[in-house]
Design a protein around this nucleic acid. Structure first.
Lengths: 376, 376
DNA sequence: TACTTCAGTGCAAAGGTTTGCATAAAGATC
DNA sequence: GATCTTTATGCAAACCTTTGCACTGAAGTA
């Protein structure tokens, strides 16, 4: 029933190898033959069997996308962009969810390794050494984690944290809390590091609360602690936690931003819809997805896997490309930040008078994908 | 370099067919042999090549998941549940996004047809006839669309709409608007139908506004129309639109629920975090994902594809299983609905005094997956 | 003892495609 | 006009696994 290359060959009166070449090496076949074959193929509704192709070429034209938590609104735009980019390059994407679990990550990479040409590891929770080990099993691109010798796509949350802290300090805040993310998160470590430095530089105190699950519940649960910590501003690991915190503070009767300012990270679409609208560090999620796919596929064409020929030509111990891309972030100032107790009280809308380095007048603007900095 | 079945056979001193059987038909091999083979396989890190397996069995152990818009928070829980369920059955999931575009849907099904064992079509936008046609190309399970002769997973939004309208009518609302969803959406048609019937029964007028894109922007854009329509309550196609509407009404200075009550559909996690918290019809999204996968895989074992043997034994024109599952929905009453102008003013929290058939005291409860009704 | 049954294993074909090599025909070079 | 290229195509092996059939030897049956 399924139409194979053989049917097309018969219909167009050529050998199957000619049909094969019509698709995979068109320049090798006579233009007249080519159009005839293509017509027959179209006619019969022929689609090459990718399993058969994979079997002989060693490339499946599939990639794996391993995500910490699909339900976290940070990821869908990334998935969407990655899938779209892959499709344009004639690749398909397996999506798998690890529920923020390191062990599940490892198992998934193993399960996928043999049937994909590469894996995108998004916000992994497992250890660096394990990731390195896995990268010997299958080409890997890591998103939101920096690893020497491995291709990575990073978002410059350090820079974002600095902007956020400077923004808050500029508004007069001297006691700031950081709601840390989950254990094992590179982003959380980076945020903490950069926020610490920036706070010191601005003469502010930074209290770290956490680790926390990167969810609304995580933020909500810390509301009480935040109030007790006596801070006037909070930088949360992500928007979800920030939103949970808004909720929790509201329940405690603490007004935002009048009593406490809150800054998130990610700029998920939701953050425009909270009351007050959330000031946040926008991360170029979709760009990260696209870039990661490109890097993976690039790596794959540079160092082809064991095809029929040539495999042995590649020296043992060959170095993979290790380019690391850092995507810029941007502070988006909305309504959840306002002058602290040491400055005069003003209406939230006028908070933009502070010396924060980045500013956006219209919070409704789409995020423009930031310029890319290539390192290593 | 990659370790094949042959390596395992050599290492354990048996024929490759014995190794194969160790994995795919363990009861056919001597227990002693089995443990030896398994040990060797484990030792060498052998993982069967799924492409080779697919080539001969005709089953890829992959399924396709076609989604109208991954970034719509309605879908991630469904994707997550489907992926998890599939994984437990040793299947992997291709995820693809159509951007709410009917043509993209068709193209994707075509592209996937040959390399998956079945496709889940979630909230399709294409025509019924096209879906039927595609179902002859590849086993299909449709979510959120009813098609005679095709397996479907439906959520009883009609029932949900009825509850919502009764709830609103019970609060005294007589002029109600329905914000319709996108053209081509079965859910939107169903909602409209059921809401119309319920409104008539309750002696209320129903004004339909739309179609609209199923996004915040879609709801936001209708705020002005809603105000001008002179209604006191609105049922929106989904929570996203409802949230956009909340936003839009706020911008217009219209208070919710004091002046206008708003009800959404879906109960996305976000709807607990708006101010006011959204009253909404909860749909069992995760259960739908699980059920759809089960139905697809069930269908697949009932009517195996052209394997090596047996294929010819299946009569032409064989009827596929066409079970349709209807999952129950539930009205979750929160703070965005309150008594209408014909009733006395009460504080929103007391709104639960109305005669709505479903009620939930604690809006923080997780949605319990509703019981399933099987039809056809 | 002679026969059947059965568990366990090996053999080899098959699945659809790609690709190095061989062949053939046509064109270029001297 | 003989030789060398070039271009287009055919041939057949290879990729890795599954599976119907055949074979062996041991246990069960009469």
């Amino acid at each position: 029933m399924p139409v194979t290359i053989r049917d097309v060959a018969r219909a167009s009166g050529v050998h199957i190898s000619t049909v094969s070449r019509t698709f995979s090496a068109p320049h090798l076949v006579n233009p007249e033959t080519r159009v005839r074959v293509l017509a027959c193929a179209e006619d019969l509704g022929y689609r090459p069997n990718r399993a058969a192709r994979a079997l002989i070429t060693g490339r499946t034209h599939n990639i794996g996308l391993i995500i910490a938590d699909i339900a976290n609104p940070f990821f869908p735009p990334l998935i969407k962009a990655a899938e779209s980019q892959a499709r344009h390059r004639d690749y398909h994407v397996f999506v798998a969810d690890t529920n923020e679990d390191a062990a599940a990550e490892e198992e998934l990479v193993h399960a996928l390794a043999k049937q994909v040409d590469g894996v995108l590891l998004c916000s992994p929770r497992m250890s660096n050494s394990l990731i390195e080990q896995l990268s010997r099993e299958v080409p890997l691109v890591v998103v939101n984690r920096q690893l020497a010798g491995l291709p990575c796509v990073l978002m410059d949350v350090g820079q974002g944290a600095r902007c956020a802290i400077e923004h808050l300090a500029g508004l007069g805040h001297r006691e700031i809390a950081l709601l840390a993310g989950p254990r094992g998160s590179w982003t959380s470590r980076e945020l903490r590091r950069a926020a610490g430095v920036a706070a010191r530089a601005a003469g502010a105190d930074l209290t770290v609360l956490g680790p926390n699950p990167p969810t609304e519940a995580g933020g909500l649960a810390q509301a009480e602690q935040v109030r007790r910590a006596g801070v006037t501003a909070v930088l949360a690991y992500n928007d979800l936690m920030a939103i949970g915190l808004l909720e929790g503070l509201d329940a405690l009767g603490v007004r935002v931003p009048q009593e406490i300012s809150v800054v998130g990270v990610d700029d998920i679409s939701l953050s425009r819809l909270t009351r007050p609208k959330l000031t946040t560090v926008a991360t170029p999620t979709a760009a990260a997805g696209r870039t990661a796919v490109d890097m993976l596929l690039q790596q794959d064409t540079d160092f082809p896997r064991s095809g029929r020929g040539g495999g042995a030509a590649v020296a043992v111990g060959v170095r993979r490309t290790t380019a690391q891309v850092m995507l810029q972030t941007e502070l988006v100032i909305r309504d959840s930040t306002a002058p602290g107790p040491y400055a005069g009280r003003e209406r939230p809308g006028a908070a933009a008078a502070g010396p924060g380095p980045h500013r956006r007048a219209d919070p409704g603007d789409p995020i423009v994908a930031a310029g890319d900095v290539v390192a290593s």
